Structures are given as structure tokens and as C-alpha cells.
Amino acid sequence: MATTIVSVINQKGGTGKTTTTINLGRALSKLGRKVLLVDLDPQSNLSYSLDITEPKFTLADAFTGTKKLKEILVQKDETFFVAPGSSELVDVEISLVTQDKRENFLKNILASVKGYDYILIDCPPSLSVLTLNALTAAHQVLIPLQMEVLTMQGLNQILTTVNKVKSSLNPRLQVKGIVVVMYDKRRKLSSEIESFLKDNIAEKIFESRIRLNVKLAEAPSFGQSILDYDPSSNGAQDYLALAKEFLK
């Protein structure tokens, strides 16, 4: 099976992007897939959430060419790996602006690793040069989305960017789907926005919804995915269901 590269994007912060990258990735690994998570966000929340607080090398070293990607990887178990991020990615992004073919750096970096079923990229919460690198490298885009009033505005911006990248840089790029996160069925607004989305956009909306769950918020404090921290929680069950639907 060839490696599938998935960019998890949302230009708004606090939308469950990092949570989804970690826990979907871990769920896929629990289902027998070999998974690599790439922390492309200079805030490196993904790395911190998996207890990678002081890595010897980071993704910035791969961008600058001082280390190969396989040299920076942190192995969590036999099927679950992480390419850690760092604040140095801010400097990387600044330097990329003046580089020729600056959107291809991550694609070339990821081409050097083999043997993974899925590579999931946690993108910065902005439509930046780093995010452009992620979209150019990816086969698919996954969009975590809260059911809030401003959802459609943000979603339209993301889809416009994806279409521009597809037409100019990466013709293979596809939207894998939209994941409803932080879902609260008690709120009428949640169901109203979800219905509006289904009626007005062509992209797939996953049936598996990620419910609001205290355990999901607790897990990063213990440096674990929700599937390792509390496998019986709603959060763990929701991400496992999403992973199964994702594989279909």
C-alpha cells in the first residue's frame, strides 16, 4: 500500500485540529496502520500533547537540511511515530519566502520516508507558507469544523485555498472530508449548522461526530492520545469510529 498524506487544516485556532490529528492518527495505528504525525505548527502543541517536550532534533532541522527526516523521528510504539515541531519553524517560514519553489520543501522531505500507511500533517492555524507546503505535499485534506456561526466563512476560505493549490501546484489534492468536532447535541445551533452544510456543500461530512468530552481536554496533560489515556471515554470511541469510517 502506498503512503497516503493527509493535511489536517483549519485557519482558525482552537478548532480541534491538533486533537484530531493526534487521535485519528492513534486510532489508525490501533487499527493496524503504520502512522507518522508531522507537527508543522510552530506552537508545537502536537509534540507537547504527546510528551515530546525537548526533542533532540525537530522538523526545522529537516527543513534546513541539517538532518534527514528519519533522523528526527520520535517513535511512540511500533506503529506510531512523530516528527516534532518547534518554535524554530517560524524562522523556517521566514526563510522560505525568498526560496525558489518554496512550496515544495515539505513534499521533498516526506518523499525520503517509506513504509508508512498514513502521514498526517498538523498544519498551523493560518493559511501560511508552511500550510501551503502541507497542501502541496498532501494527497488529501481533512477539515475539523465546529458547529459555530462563523463556520461557513472559514470553511469557504479553506475550500477556496484548496482549489487554488489543486489548480496551480498539486492536481492530485482532494478533500477527504469534514469532521464535526466539539459536538453538543443539546444545542439546536449544532444541528442547524450541520443541516445547512449538508444542503449547501458538496464535500463529504463524516457521520462520526466528535462529541464534547472532558477526557479529550485532559489527555494532553498526561502526554497521551485519548485512546491511551482513557480508551472507554466518548472521545476515544468517537475517534475510533472516525478512523474506521476514514478507512472505508
Score class of each variant (00 low, 15 high):
Ile158Ala: 09
Phe196Tyr: 12
Ala134Met: 03
Met152Gln: 14
Asp91Met: 15
Asp117Lys: 00
Val113Pro: 13
Thr160Tyr: 13
Leu28Tyr: 03
Arg187Gly: 04
Leu142Thr: 00
Asn104Cys: 01
Thr98Val: 12
Asp41Leu: 05
Thr161Asn: 12
Ile210Arg: 14
Asn108Ser: 15
Pro144Phe: 10
Thr79Ser: 11
Pro171Ala: 05
Ile178Ser: 09
Ser112Glu: 15
Pro55Asp: 13
Ser190His: 14
Lys68Gln: 15
Ser208Pro: 03
Asp228Lys: 10
Ile72His: 05
Asn45Val: 00
Lys12Tyr: 05
Arg187Glu: 08
Ala2Asp: 14
Ala219Pro: 01
Tyr118Leu: 05
Leu89Tyr: 04
Leu110Pro: 10
Thr19Phe: 00
Gly154Arg: 15
Ser191His: 07
Tyr183Ala: 01
Ser29Cys: 12
Ile158Gln: 14
Thr161Pro: 03
Val162Arg: 12
Leu169Arg: 10
Asn45Phe: 02
Thr19Met: 00
Ala62His: 05
Arg186Met: 15
Leu130Asn: 07
Thr64Cys: 00
Lys244Pro: 01
Gln237Phe: 07
Phe222Met: 04
Leu173Cys: 12
Ala27Cys: 05
Val175Gly: 05
Gln157Ile: 11
Gly16Tyr: 10
Asp51Leu: 07
Ser95Asp: 15
Asp228Tyr: 04
Asp238Ser: 06
Gln153Leu: 14
Ile22Met: 06
Ala241Met: 04
Asn108Cys: 01
Leu24Thr: 02
Ser47Trp: 13
Leu130Ala: 02
Lys101Gly: 09
Ser191Pro: 01
Gly235Ala: 13
Tyr239Ile: 10
Val92Ala: 13
Ser44Val: 06
Lys12Trp: 07
Ile22Cys: 01
Leu212Cys: 09
Tyr229Glu: 15
Leu37His: 02
Asn10Met: 02
Asn200Phe: 11
Phe57Met: 12
Lys185Leu: 08
Leu96Trp: 10
Leu50Asp: 15
Thr79Trp: 05
Ala138His: 15
Ile52Lys: 12
Leu189Val: 11
Thr98Phe: 09
Leu28Val: 07
Leu59Cys: 07
Asp230Tyr: 10
Lys34Ala: 10
Val82Asn: 14
Glu88Leu: 14
Glu245Cys: 00
Leu96His: 08
Asn108His: 06
Leu130His: 08
Val129His: 02
Pro171His: 08
Val149Asp: 07
Glu218Asn: 06
Leu189His: 04
Asn10Lys: 02
Gln11Gly: 13
Leu132Glu: 09
Val74Gly: 03
Val35Ile: 02
Thr131Phe: 00
Lys244Phe: 00
Asp61Cys: 08
Val181Asp: 09
Gln146Gly: 05
Leu197Gln: 10
Ser233Asn: 12
Asn104Ala: 02
Gly14Asn: 08
Lys166Pro: 11
Ala134Trp: 04
Pro124Tyr: 11
Ile52Ser: 06
Lys12Asp: 04
Gly25Phe: 14
Leu145Val: 11
Leu150Ser: 03
Phe222Trp: 08
Asn45Ser: 04
Gln75Asp: 11
Gln140Ile: 10
Ser29Val: 09
Gln224His: 03
Thr136Met: 01
Lys176Leu: 15
Asp238Cys: 13
Glu207Thr: 09
Ile52Cys: 12
Ile205Glu: 11
Tyr229Ala: 12
Leu127Arg: 08
Leu159Ser: 04
Thr19Gly: 00
Ala27Gly: 13
Lys215Asn: 12
Leu96Met: 13
Leu240Ala: 06
Tyr116Trp: 03
